[in-house]
Design a protein around this nucleic acid. Structure first.
Lengths: 339, 339
DNA sequence: CGACGAGGTTGAAACCTTTCAACCGTTCAG
DNA sequence: CTGAACGGTTGAAAGGTTTCAACCTCGTCG
């Protein structure tokens, strides 16, 4: 209770004040059942009295590793990632394992810096959605004993366990929904095309379209995945001759979809009457948009939970065979696609 | 280059392999200028060869403190906070000081857990937007040597330095804008009323309204600050007799405003023709809404930069007098308030 | 009555880095 | 020629925790 000004209190101080050896104090902290009730209470009282706080650095030094888990996300500004992170955090918080969140901001240099840092910290494990060509570096980390699980990426899947969502299935769900509601001239908006996510969603949408005679799919590539990109792509679409103008737009994520929606509203194009619109991710803002957005929901909570679980498994047995969990996305129908 | 399988390499191993004392290896790492070029190169080669990685725990133990900075935010799901965090991170990244992001999720218990954790880690400093009644705890931390800066909160301002944005000014800006564009029956939506932010924005809006004869302000309290709260509050407003229905709504933040907008659109109430709408924060989604939202922009980048700077100052001189930086918000006019 | 085991407690070692006083050999000024 | 200064290197100490074999004290059983 009292806040003594003494700079820093160590186990040694506690032991001296309580008249026991420091091994016993440590036992109170880590194996209370080994200590008699009387001694325990006395020591706890002294700890409180002196304001003793464990020194985590010393503990880690001794243990040889860090209990904390690190997660490197692509972009904290994207609600999809923060939701996944939130779920991971909840999962680890249960056993008091802190989650350190790092944002690579899609920058390979930052990503590398964080990896260095975490290795110096002997961090317990890393969840990562890789940006740059980090596979060799990850391999090195793994060989030196750091557990690694890939999130939402299958690159390097042969070497590292991963948790992801089936983007092909999602792309197909979106396209089929549009086709089933009578749309025939589809447009896919997203990019850059090199992104695996974009490629998978696009390719599978195309294959669904090809099964419907008379239906077409146009690909409008963007260089980013935010609302501005959606607005600009829409301007291009609206400039097309009336006959070519799509009657449905599939945006590669919800941020892009929100931009598309905004541009359409500005141009007095009715959604969904004139053009149906579907996004991807089902972030909270999709439901809150002025015209609630149909979307492909990625099970973010489940993604986070599974990632946490898998990382725990890899930590427990690093030599176990590589494993992959692929989750199923789900179609969420709202006003932007049906009248 | 080679990845030897030897479990863990320490300075001692490097020293032995290079035929020098371990003090010299340490100097290469920390004071390269003290070591002759030849020795330095040889040691660096060995470090590379052996794959030596500094052990941060030992370093910290020796140093007595942790270089890392921690930031405890109210809610990672709110883009306002992630933007501020992003700015703080960029600021610290410049000198390779990692930022550990923690999410209290508005839960006092989680907040307390993180504070415990950071104290055990002897973390270099903490940026916090407090939730619970943590002032005594923060005082304790400060007394034991942890630097603390409050972000976006002035509670306990007499004891801790802080960086915030002037909510009274923001509330006034919003109300005056609505009044100047001819609105007279205003409604303020937000809550809970106990939140300092909500109180300040509301009170100052009210005082602006009172300066305009004939203008009125109604307070609709919500229990959270998300889109759903905005939708529900709007339903209550729309149920009012026509004469009492407001012609302008000031939402306490943009998430709430988006909910309001959605409910209004559903009810076929035209924005801004029938009802003008202004939010607060100017998150990215405000501009991307189907009807772009007028809002009060908080200088998030500046907030983060200043917070980082101030924390550095407090760390450098803990006994310096408490200081407060209050930033100015800014009115951003978009389609939701002007025809 | 002696041996043994259980329950508690102890003390030293180990973890790895950084710092700092001391040291060595060389050079330079006086 | 002496003494001091200098650049470079060394070795030991310190920092706080956890673990573990050893030890002590009783009580119990044979």
């Amino acid at each position: 209770m009292s806040t003594t000004a003494a700079r820093r209190v160590s186990v040694k101080d506690v032991a001296a004040a309580a008249g026991v050896s420091l091994g016993t104090v440590s036992n109170v902290l880590n194996h209370p059942e080994k200590v008699s009730a009387a001694t325990r209470d006395r020591i706890l009282a002294v700890i409180d009295e002196l304001g003793f706080v464990r020194n985590d650095a010393a503990r880690q030094l001794r243990a040889g590793h860090n209990r904390a888990i690190a997660m490197i996300v692509l972009d904290v500004a994207n609600p999809f990632f923060t939701d996944v992170a939130h779920s991971v955090e909840t999962e680890f918080a249960a056993q008091r394992q802190p989650l350190i969140l790092a944002d690579s901001s899609q920058d390979p240099a930052r990503e590398a810096t964080y990896l260095d840092l975490f290795e110096e910290q002997r961090i317990g494990g890393i969840l990562i959605t890789p940006v740059g060509r980090v596979l060799p570096r990850l391999r090195q980390l793994r060989d030196r004993g750091t557990a690694i699980v890939l999130v939402d990426r299958k690159a390097g899947a042969r070497e590292f366990s991963s948790v992801s969502v089936d983007d092909r299935r999602g792309g197909r769900l979106a396209a089929e929904h549009l086709l089933e509601t009578g749309r025939r001239r589809l447009a896919f908006v997203g990019g850059p095309a090199a992104l695996a996510q974009v490629r998978d969603r696009h390719v599978s949408a195309r294959s669904a379209v090809e099964e419907h005679p008379g239906a077409t799919l146009r690909f409008i590539e963007t260089d980013t995945m935010d609302a501005r990109a959606g607005r600009r792509a829409t301007d291009r679409l609206l400039a097309l001759p009336a006959a070519e103008r799509p009657d449905a737009i599939f945006a590669a994520n919800d941020l892009v979809a929100l931009g598309v929606l905004q541009a359409l509203t500005l141009a007095h194009v009715s959604v969904p009457d004139d053009i149906a619109l579907i996004g991807y991710d089902d972030i909270e803002f999709a439901a809150s948009a002025a015209i609630p957005l149909s979307s492909i929901r990625q099970p973010r909570d489940e993604l986070g939970r599974q990632a946490a679980q898998m990382l725990r498994d890899v930590i427990a047995d690093p030599s176990a065979p590589v494993r992959h969990v692929v989750l199923e996305p789900e179609l969420v129908v709202r006003r932007s696609t049906v009248r």
